[in-house]
Design a protein around this nucleic acid. Sequence first.
DNA 1: CTGAAAGCGCTAACAT
DNA 2: ATGTTAGCGCTTTCAG
Lengths: 357, 357
Amino acid sequence: MGDTKPAADEAASEQVRAKAGRVRIEDVAEAAGVSMKTVSRVLNNEPNVSPRTRGLVEAAVEKLRYRPLPSARVLAGRRSYLVAMLFDNPSNNYLMEIELGVLDACQAQHYNLMLAPLVYNADDIIDKVEALVVQAQLDGVILTPPITDDVALLRRLEELGIPYASISAKEQNRHVGVVVDEHGAVCSMMAHLASLGHRRIAHVRGHAAHGASAWRLAGYREGLRRAGLRYDARLVVDGEFSYESGYAATNALLDLDDRPTAIFAANDDMAAGAICAICERGLSVPGDISVCGFDDTPIAHQIYPALTTVRQPTREMGRLAATELLKEVRELGSGGIVDVPYALQLRRSTGPVSSVD
Amino acid sequence: MGDTKPAADEAASEQVRAKAGRVRIEDVAEAAGVSMKTVSRVLNNEPNVSPRTRGLVEAAVEKLRYRPLPSARVLAGRRSYLVAMLFDNPSNNYLMEIELGVLDACQAQHYNLMLAPLVYNADDIIDKVEALVVQAQLDGVILTPPITDDVALLRRLEELGIPYASISAKEQNRHVGVVVDEHGAVCSMMAHLASLGHRRIAHVRGHAAHGASAWRLAGYREGLRRAGLRYDARLVVDGEFSYESGYAATNALLDLDDRPTAIFAANDDMAAGAICAICERGLSVPGDISVCGFDDTPIAHQIYPALTTVRQPTREMGRLAATELLKEVRELGSGGIVDVPYALQLRRSTGPVSSVD
DNA sequence: CTGAAAGCGCTAACAT
DNA sequence: ATGTTAGCGCTTTCAG
């Protein structure tokens, strides 16, 4: 390690600086023999840099292992490289999958994610979000159900001119985000039940305030229609997406004189509750009654019998929503709606209608 | 709206500025009739401000609805007001509860949370974390299992001098963070099983690389000892915390000539797998075999029969870990280890040993 | 295509 | 107890 050659000196001093202080854009500029601004251009993919210069800068960045300091960029620039995910925890599992997907996209594009727990329908939600957007200088927000359906909030976000993307929003007009054809999914599920010979199919609804509940009910009715079955209001009972509500709703159905041979619950948790209620009466699934759910959460294959349900690619949905949002952030109007595919997961909880019935 | 009176002018200009640009510390200083620095002192709870002045400043902050811009504070100051949570998803549910707790504490103390998905035992984990710490200027990190047990990482964090807090770390020496007495919890569970008359109690182990597995096994052995039961190696089978592994392990146990009358699985998912395996053989839980788990995840009460298990206050653990970390951030050495209580959740999956046995 | 200078909003160090 | 000054590291004008 001689200290005679200038090159060695330079390398050494750079080392020291990197260790002690921190490599700054100025150091990179010096190393590449260009100005700070040119380095900045390269970093931000701006036009008007010759390929040769770009290469020089990139090499210097690599060599010095330079990474821009986020706070400095934010302070100086217009963008904050920060998006927030607004949520009112619908379910730990669903939310975490979405979050992981969002994180995937954010990391890939060097954006940061901030989490904003909110309470759906609380009257201070707009103030809270506004404070967040202004204070944290958010570049955009991701809305998860059921926050997606707060019209007042949507309006305010539009007034503020801040890009947003929603996941499974009820109203899809003018939105950026991702949706899955829940209506179609439920229709397929109903077709599956009908093909097994079921004629009395019940539905346990989800929480009334959630958009998903309406879709799933609509799919149920359309499914009945297509199978040539009559809608019977007594076979539709309210739940609220929780295990307990599914349990209670199913007990009500089991008390009917003419009980159903199949139950479509609006999500897996309620379906699990349904199975429990059925088992407790000494009936068997699917021997006596078939049960199916929606979401394909882990519980779907961790209960006995394993649940027939509908799978949505949750993590992918998070990733795509974030991707569309970031497009929108870069250029208003460039984000779109992505329709992701669902898949029926046929498992043991559904079977042919029992012949004695 | 006259423009003659200076006071009105000032108010109006403040309004405009607040709307168009943004309220800055300078505006607050002007409104309070003090210098920028004094406002800064009040904002940061620094000493050497007279109560009167403090009051003046606070009133101005309130009136102008002033909020400091994070990036500016970070750039100018030493702290980043940012902590990261390092994780290698052990389970969506567990992680989300921890995260919500951490978020509670961070929000209360005006800190931001960054999420860092990692892969336990990957060889680039140290580089990744180091890049994060340096680049994002983290004030501290929170470690979740199993990342808590990466000794090389812990050493590096200490070298870097960056505060960290861990949740349920295997080695608790010199750590800041939160722990629960898992050993004691398992002993209690074993005492419960023994009191029901069980003499042949099996254990399905967790993933070998996780600290929790070792604790739970140790608690199992100690529990046997206290109940005066002999340890039988054939009754201990390996799992890896997944539903499938619990299912497979239980099938192995059921194939034994002298099969157990109770199974303690190292977590709920595996216990759910165990119940499935038992049911599939036409045996009943707890009639033929009692099953218990650990964690009290939602699945514990969503399967049939509901699972006897151990509950840890997960969200609270996240909150406490973050709280201790932030103490440590403010003043090295001020954070400590918090021992949180566990609770046995007795449900239907455990019962008296069958008399025929 | 490139560079020089002027801040972004705040805090640190040093006055006073 | 309070104020003054000089940056933090980057981007944005605006000028070449």
